[in-house]
Design a protein around this nucleic acid. Structure first.
Lengths: 236, 236
DNA sequence: CGGGTAGCGTGAGGCGGATCACAGCCGGGA
DNA sequence: TCCCGGCTGTGATCCGCCTCACGCTACCCG
């Protein structure tokens, strides 16, 4: 009884995810027993690289960062994901170990789906498989851009690219430009751009002096997108 | 008549790709009219970044490199693909522009499939969609490793990682270690590791002097995999 | 209140690797 | 045969950024 109420709740929660919204009621109720819910407060680790894969996580609300360790013990951020995204990537459907550590950047609500149940559902439902395929493709594109970004030699270019990338995916139009509300520390921006904390501090300082960005209360506003784009293209 | 013979040939060619092998005969013959074949000699460009997407390319034999330009005009290689892989990634199913330039590293045989036909097939055939999903996931994993690799500061580590990565995906067991037969120039290795040609020359020279690798005739042999792995882990 | 911690800004200095320059080598074509 | 263009090795130089070191502010918690 109680169990059924719970399950009903999961189906409602699943419906709110664009990926699952088009599914038939019957599919959802069949999936429900394989779903759990979880929250993760800002700053907490959701799972660590190397732990055994327990479920595919669908992000209902909040943002997370996905990161790995480099040989010299620094943290390299791979990407930042938002509502509607899922992780780890579906290569983990077969089990194994999480390929990267995932941390909540904001308070997060998650739905965890069993591996086997999801695999079955994907096999039965071509539309869903196709939808997830496209979502994966988006991630792939994203990573390709990150590879190019990291290959950039000039630090100004790297940082400018990172900011634009973040703004595109996680920004909100606000007063006087795009606003970035993730409260990323300089350390986290450094981990994203593959550089040192102090270098971020300096580069951001320069951008601020030049009027490209403005930072207040840990959130960041892009004041002059065109100029930032120029910086990202290596013009000075 | 001739047309039918051609199509029969395509279905046979498609069968040889692991992705398409499990398909029903009927599916294949339905797909056949949407398939063309193409070869690309070593060194030739298959398509360029920015050109309009004409088809999804399935690599039957040979290897290709996928690369983008950086802000300062250097070429950054994203990945090297082999038989059974396809490109561009499926985000391009919706059309648009190629996200990266693809060049043949060896003489290549390709099968080109129309976007719309492939999308239809994927929608109808969940198993195929799932199989391609897993292939994409593999690529994603690959790119994550590349991001970590590029974030590495020490050049020795970056190069060692790149060599191991290449060996895993494209190496052959040979006399006295894994053999890499792609005849990559130092310039191409530099583009892969995001560094300068001269630095590759020096680093590879060091590896050779230390007995980790051996290069002959442009092909490369990994003599001491354990030691190379140690170098990749930052031990000296 | 005061100490402890996390994050930010900035200076000084050293170093790894990018860059420039050049020489030797090979293969291919006239 | 001789050239010429592409690839490789290596030396010399130079500079961007990493590193180290420190002071400052804010905030939390006892």
């Amino acid at each position: 009884m109680e169990r059924r109420a719970e399950q009903h709740q999961w189906t409602r929660a699943l419906r709110r995810l664009p990926l699952f919204a088009p599914l038939a009621e019957e599919e959802l109720t069949r999936l429900a027993p394989a779903v759990r819910s979880r929250t993760a407060p800002r700053g907490s680790v959701i799972f660590r690289e190397g732990e055994e894969v327990a479920a595919i996580h669908f992000l209902v609300s909040g943002r997370v960062k996905v990161a790995m360790m480099t040989a010299d013990g620094r943290e390299q951020t791979l990407t930042i994901l938002g509502p509607g995204d899922f992780f780890p990537h579906l290569g983990c459907l077969a089990g194994g170990a999480y390929p990267a550590t995932t941390t909540a950047l904001e308070d997060c609500a998650l739905l965890l789906v069993d591996l086997a149940a999801l695999a079955d559902l994907l096999r039965r439902n071509g539309d869903l498989a196709l939808a997830m395929l496209l979502k994966m493709a988006q991630r792939l594109e994203d990573l390709q851009q990150r590879v190019r970004e990291l290959a950039e030699r000039d630090l100004r270019v790297r940082v400018a690219r990172a900011l634009l990338h973040l703004a595109d995916r996680h920004g909100r139009p606000g007063a006087g430009g795009l606003q970035l509300d993730l409260r990323l520390t300089h350390q986290e921006l450094a981990s994203l751009t593959g550089t040192a904390r102090e270098s971020i501090s300096r580069t951001l300082g320069a951008f601020r002096r030049e009027g490209l960005v403005e930072s207040a209360e840990g959130s960041l506003v892009i004041r002059d997108r065109a100029a930032l784009q120029a910086a990202a293209d290596g013009l000075r």
